[in-house]
Nucleic acid binder design. Structure first.
Lengths: 145, 145
DNA sequence: CCCTGCAGTGCAACCAGGTTGCACTGCAGG
DNA sequence: CCTGCAGTGCAACCTGGTTGCACTGCAGGG
């Protein structure tokens, strides 16, 4: 590797910007999330971390993730398998997700969105809009052709 | 009450249309769902049923619900509290949901929708679109004003 | 230098939604 | 009457997630 650690730096920088204490668990989790192409479940994170030699307790992971979400650095999505998955919060106001029917993976879609809202009954106060597209991800579509 | 049971008839009729065996559990569950103004969790269903004198095992409920979903009579939504909630499937192709941040209840929105799709990366095969509006339901908004 | 306090971590027990395996019931058909 | 099968109930189980508590390491104050 020609240059310093990949998104380790970015992860550390993001944490520093928050003025928060920089612990190995936080750096590693954020780093993994930044490198991932799909949202990661707590379990995937634990495996990925321990595969690279850093073993964290699941409680530590949950707490780190809660903390990251509270800091606004990460957001969580619950798929229909009832498992929370996490991915780094990029700077788009509203964004959609894609959930694969076959492998269950969850991706963030970055394209811009149709911003029309559905009709809301009287008295309801809308706040945020979640859009999830279900279907087949590129990998599953390819392997099933 | 002037006329025969409320949506008991409707529930029975729907089941008959499917040519399926009509069991007390199926009728009662469908009846409760038809009467509800918000999507019901399995737990809420169990309580509601046993409050009206019909006690069902939770396994029975899960199976009845699975069956109803498979029949297309009911659909399930998973809120961010990771609990599945069920509501009768009406005849709208796409429809949105409203999830209350305060009480966690889930409502189906019946109005028509903006049908534009977000941009999908190459290779992905979209299939179905889920839209969930988060915010405060009428009750919670009123009691918090 | 020791004492205190506190954030982060790990371990173990726990909780709740959901599933599985199996035995029981009731009914239709031969 | 026997057989088969759908529906139901019970109990054990699985898993994602939470809670309580003890341990560690470090910063700040005497």
């Amino acid at each position: 590797m020609p240059n310093p650690p990949p998104n380790h730096d970015q992860a550390t920088r993001l944490l520093q910007q928050r003025g928060a204490s920089i612990t190995p668990a936080r750096v590693r989790v954020l780093q993994l999330l930044l490198a991932a192409d799909a949202a990661m479940s707590h379990q995937a994170l634990q495996q990925a971390a321990s595969a690279s030699g850093q073993r964290f307790d699941k409680v530590t992971l949950y707490r780190v993730l809660d903390w990251l979400v509270a800091q606004g650095l990460v957001h969580s999505v619950t798929g229909h398998d009832r498992v929370r998955r996490f991915s780094p919060m990029h700077a788009h106001a509203t964004h959609a997700h894609f959930e694969c029917n076959d492998c269950g993976r969850l991706f963030c879609l970055h394209g811009k969105l149709p911003l029309a809202r559905p009709e809301i009954p009287a008295g309801f106060q809308p706040d945020r809009l979640d859009i999830t597209v279900h279907g087949r991800c590129a990998d599953c579509a390819a392997s099933a052709h």
